[in-house]
């Protein structure tokens, strides 16, 4: 009983929808109202066909379904791919519908509009005259202008000066590093490092014990070479006990971490060992005091002098040889 009623209702709704789909007969349409000013169109045509209108309606319907699916998915299963597909698809399909309607449904017109004559010499003259009129009867114009200019400049300076409170007082830059004579080198877990842990062909990252690690001057790299391989001054070689040598981790070009190590596996053909920064490929020679081999860095990588303490652990023998981090314009560089 109720099923047949439902069927009747559905049939009725279907019929109504079908009637909507049928194009309205144009004869019944009232004529479009006339404009007070006649249109400036050069050409005008009305391209609409029932098929085009149906297509636009169908596209909008599909778009609406996809948008509705987005809402459902957001609640039920917010998966990035599906959400993007639904919302993006809905907008693209509706966009195609709108563009198609703009081309094939609404009247197509070619119109013309004159470019405005922007310049008007009489108005320029008028403005000049009006501005100059303000000076009528004023005798000391130069003095007034100078005083106003001075006031403006000083107020401007007063407005700019508070910028300085953004940072530490200019010139207060911290040049001190956490490295002191006797400070132990620890690995990323905080365990002290011993020279025998440093093997040839690898790089070990180390930090100063009990200090902030996330600064430019804290991290260093440890490498091992045969002592006779190190081509550097006696003082620098003495700072590399047993061929274990430490360099700052931070590139002297643009502050990136120098994280790549080129270790020759076939010394006959491969290039020499080098520390390479992945940002701009500044290449440093670890056997010659961190000298620049290639790339844009203008200074060698600073070396950290090392010692071995009584417990057989690696410790710093002092501060860096050379300035850590990038060069600053206007800085006085400490001698290497």
């Amino acid at each position: 009983m109720s099923e047949s009623r439902l069927r009747i209702a559905l049939a009725w709704i279907g019929l109504r929808l079908l009637r909507r789909l049928r194009p309205r007969r144009r004869a019944q349409e009232p004529p479009a109202p006339r404009r007070a000013e006649p249109p400036d169109a050069l050409a005008r045509e009305t391209p609409s066909t029932p098929r085009a209108e149906l297509l636009v309606a169908a596209l909008l319907l599909v778009g609406a379904l996809a948008a509705a699916a987005f809402v459902v998915l957001y609640v039920v299963r917010p998966d990035t791919q599906l959400l993007g597909l639904c919302l993006g698809g809905a907008l693209v399909i509706c966009g195609i519908a709108a563009a198609f309607a703009g081309k094939r449904v609404v009247p197509q017109e070619t119109a013309s509009e004159p470019y405005e004559q922007l310049a008007d010499e009489r108005k320029v003259d008028d403005v000049g005259a009006i501005v100059r009129e303000a000076g009528e009867g004023v005798s000391r114009r130069g003095m007034l202008a100078a005083a106003a200019g001075l006031a403006g400049a000083t107020i401007g300076a007063a407005a700019v000066v508070p910028v300085a409170s953004l940072g530490p007082a200019v010139g207060d830059r911290i040049t001190a590093t956490p490295w002191r004579r006797g400070r132990r080198l620890v690995d990323s877990e905080g365990r002290p490092l011993r020279p025998e842990q440093i093997t040839e062909g690898t790089v070990v990252l180390a930090f100063p014990e009990a200090a902030d690690r996330n600064t430019l001057d804290a991290p260093v790299m440890l490498l091992r070479f045969a002592p006779e391989e190190l081509e550097m001054s006696a003082a620098r070689r003495a700072a590399a006990p047993g061929g274990v040598i430490a360099y700052s981790r931070i590139c002297t070009h643009a502050s990136c971490a120098v994280s790549m190590y080129r270790h020759p596996l076939h010394p006959a053909t491969a290039p020499e060992p080098a520390l390479v920064c992945p940002c701009h490929f500044s290449t440093f020679d670890p056997r010659r005091g961190g000298a620049v081999l290639f790339g844009p860095a203008g200074r060698p990588l600073p070396q950290l002098p090392l010692q071995v303490n009584a417990a057989g652990e690696l410790v710093a023998a002092g501060g860096f040889i050379g300035q850590v981090g990038p060069s600053y314009a206007g800085e006085r560089e400490t001698e290497a």
Binding site: T80, Q81, L82, L83, G84, L85, L87, G88, G89, A90, L91, V92, I93, C94, G95, I96, A97, A98, A99, F100, A101, G102, K103, V105, V106
Partner: peptide
């Protein structure tokens, strides 16, 4: 206007498709 709205929706939709997929 319809063409421009269409362009907006297509640009926005393509960006969302890129963002999702």
């Amino acid at each position: 206007a319809l063409r421009s709205i269409g362009l907006f929706l297509i640009v926005a939709g393509l960006l969302l498709l890129l963002g999702g997929l």
